[in-house]
Simulated assay, not measured.
Amino acid sequence: MRVAFIGTGSMGSLLIEAFLRSGALLPQSICASNRSQSKTKLLAQRHPGLHVVRSNVEAVQGSKIIFLCVKPLDFSKVIAEITDALDEKQIIVSITSPVEVGILEQLTPAKVAKIVPSITHSVHSGSSLCIYGKRIRPEDRLLLEQLMSSISTPFTLKETETRIASDIASCGPAFMAYMLQLWAESAEELTGISREDALKLGSQMLLGTGKLLTEGGFTTNQLIDRVSVPGGVTAQGLAVLESGLRGVFDRLIEATHRKYDEDLSKLHTLFGPLSSTKNP
């Protein structure tokens, strides 16, 4: 099975590298195109056998699955370029959350899915967010989820839930890293522990906490109760977090959704009348 990647920027390259490390794909089964061929050539140098093609149309031809790893505002141009080379047996996968499945279904004869990845896939972890178009058959969904399972945990959701799910699964690593960074900076300033040691301890703590919540059978409330003793040190710290963090995530969600709505508005302008049709 040949798999194409149109766009080999940050996320396109990450996906290719992750699939190859997992063994789910071999270099010979991958073809890649990019506006700057230097990026795809570097991938081919690291993974002999990977096909570098000169155009997006060439990438599409003969590929069963085509991952579109381009910026949202580049979608209309790329789709217009490749549509005539697509057929109803191929599967287009958008990794960009604002681009709506229903619009892509109107613009191409191919089957359409949206799969929003995460940087965590580079270590074969995290959730991949899966939204399927009307033409996706059960066997297509199985094929896609088998592929994504090699580097992540596929999570199916409604397209209307894409933004909030992306906040958690895709933006979340940056949010958590930022909070850990602030914690380490305060620890160094107030106690003398090195920032490096504080970050190492915090990183291992995040890893273990994730395992407790996914593999250890704990709910968030159970974990809090297990660690926190009434009147103890953890309880004092939780009281500070309660007073300081309450409302922070409301503002975070409002900010990310506001930017998402701006992106949607720009895309609707690009796609014109098609933008009025949304996938349920």
Rank of each mutant, 00 (worst) to 15 (best):
I131A: 00
Y132I: 00
K134L: 07
K134C: 05
R135V: 02
R137K: 05
R137Q: 07
R137N: 07
P138K: 08
E139L: 10
D140N: 02
D140V: 02
L142R: 10
L142Y: 03
L143M: 10
L143N: 05
L143F: 10
L143C: 07
L143P: 06
L144Y: 01
L144C: 03
E145G: 05
Q146F: 08
Q146N: 13
L147F: 01
M148Q: 06
M148D: 12
S149V: 14
I151E: 02
I151C: 07
S152H: 00
T153R: 01
P154C: 03
T156W: 03
T156S: 08
L157F: 01
L157W: 00
L157Q: 00
K158N: 00
K158C: 04
E159S: 00
E159I: 01
T160I: 04
R163H: 10
I164V: 05
A165F: 09
A165R: 02
A165I: 09
A165K: 02
S170P: 13
S170L: 15
C171G: 09
G172N: 11
F175V: 11
F175M: 12
M176I: 14
M176K: 13
A177I: 15
Y178S: 12
M179H: 15
Q181T: 15
Q181G: 14
L182M: 15
W183Y: 09
W183G: 10
E185T: 09
S186L: 12
S186G: 15
A187H: 13
E188V: 07
E189G: 05
E189Y: 06
L190G: 08
L190P: 05
L190M: 04
L190T: 03
T191H: 10
G192A: 11
I193K: 08
I193Y: 08
S194K: 02
S194H: 06
R195M: 08
R195W: 06
E196Y: 10
E196G: 05
E196S: 05
L199V: 14
L199I: 10
K200N: 12
L201G: 11
L201P: 13
L201C: 10
G202Y: 03
G202D: 15
G202P: 13
S203D: 13
S203C: 11
Q204V: 07
Q204E: 08
M205P: 10
L206N: 06
L207V: 09
G208N: 02
G210H: 04
K211L: 09
K211M: 15
L213S: 03
T214E: 02
G216I: 02
G216W: 01
G216F: 00
G216T: 06
F218L: 13
T219Y: 14
T220R: 14
T220C: 13
